[in-house]
């Protein structure tokens, strides 16, 4: 690993100033499970690493009193799934947080880092899409919000420009009769990168028989995680049954545009996009019905 300077500022404005230091390349550090490996193994160069874990905005994790929750970008997966109150409201997020890496990784890796690493196969992102999350971005010149489905632009590239960081994730309150789920396919039981993944959420009618609204996010089947808007548009108002799930799968397959690589062939990923859409929608519906 090449030499770099390390800073761990304890206020956001100092961090943003450091990140914008002229003529220096800076890398923000959260859990380090991607960054430290990239610095060591891929020859990634940087002049300074800015550790964000002393910043209250990045480590906050709290309910906004009926208006949803805020998760700081550096909060590790285990802190997220250990919060019982949160877990009962955001099941899709919990599914994803519980299957990223092993315990050692979950104790460090953050959803913010997963987003900023912008892997097409990131497990957190389809779940965040299903839960309609908004990203809070800050730089020295101000703040802005980005919908999570628009955050990644291409493999390894996000909407963040020089000097900007992802501060936190805003999760809208989950309505009544809401359910969500995330699943991925891997050839092992644990500790692997998704061949394909899907996150789904639904809001059901009062009798639990009709889908009032739904969202499906796909992972590892395109250069970035995808929101399949056509599923939301075409299938709202449909019955909770296997025909609806199959229609969703068919639409999902039509949006999958994967590559073939060591993890899977393109045709397999297209197939998996359908299967995982079907399964996660079904689980999301079952979870919503269980809460009726």
């Amino acid at each position: 690993m090449d030499a770099f300077d390390y800073f761990a500022p304890d206020n956001l404005s100092e961090a943003l100033t450091l990140l914008a230091t002229p003529n220096k390349t800076s890398r923000p550090l959260a859990g380090g499970t991607d960054l430290i490996v990239q610095l060591r193994e891929t020859g990634l160069k940087c002049d300074q690493v800015i550790d964000l874990k002393n910043l209250a905005e990045l480590t906050q994790f709290q309910s906004e009193g009926g208006k949803g929750w805020t998760i700081g970008a550096a909060v590790p997966c285990s802190e997220i799934y250990e919060n019982a109150e949160f877990a009962s409201q955001y099941p899709g997020i919990i599914d994803a947080a519980s299957l990223i890496g092993g315990i050692q990784i979950q104790n460090r890796a953050s959803f913010g880092g997963n987003l900023c690493n912008a892997s097409p196969a990131a497990d957190a992102i389809p779940a965040l899409i299903a839960h309609s999350v908004t990203c809070q971005v800050a730089s020295k010149s101000g703040t802005r919000e980005v919908n999570v489905e628009d955050f990644c632009q291409s493999p390894g590239k996000t909407v963040l420009s020089e000097g900007e960081i992802l501060v936190s994730l805003k999760l809208p309150a989950t309505p009544k009769r809401f359910g969500a789920a995330y699943q991925r396919f891997i050839p092992r039981n644990e500790m692997d990168i998704a061949v394909a993944g899907a996150g789904s959420s639904v809001v059901l009618s009062e009798d639990g028989k009709t889908i009032e609204s739904l969202r499906v996010g796909l992972g590892a089947v395109a250069p970035t995680p995808l929101l399949v808007q056509e599923i939301s548009d075409k299938l709202k108002g449909k019955e909770v049954d296997s025909a609806t799930f199959e229609q969703a799968a068919e639409i999902a397959r039509s949006y999958a545009n994967p590559i073939s690589d060591t993890r899977g062939e393109d045709w397999q990923r297209v197939h998996l996009a359908g299967v995982l859409t079907q399964r996660t929608l079904q689980i999301a519906c079952e979870r919503a019905q269980a809460a009726l």
Binding site: G32, I36, V37, V49, D51, P76, Q104, N107, R108
Partner: peptide, 24 residues
């Protein structure tokens, strides 16, 4: 970060010490 041979506890949480900067 794959093998866990370097596992330690950092403030009560299990981590891979190869993926923690000492200054952290």
């Amino acid at each position: 970060g794959n093998c866990g041979a370097c596992n330690i506890m950092l403030d009560g949480r299990l981590v891979n010490s190869c993926m923690v900067l000492a200054l952290e």
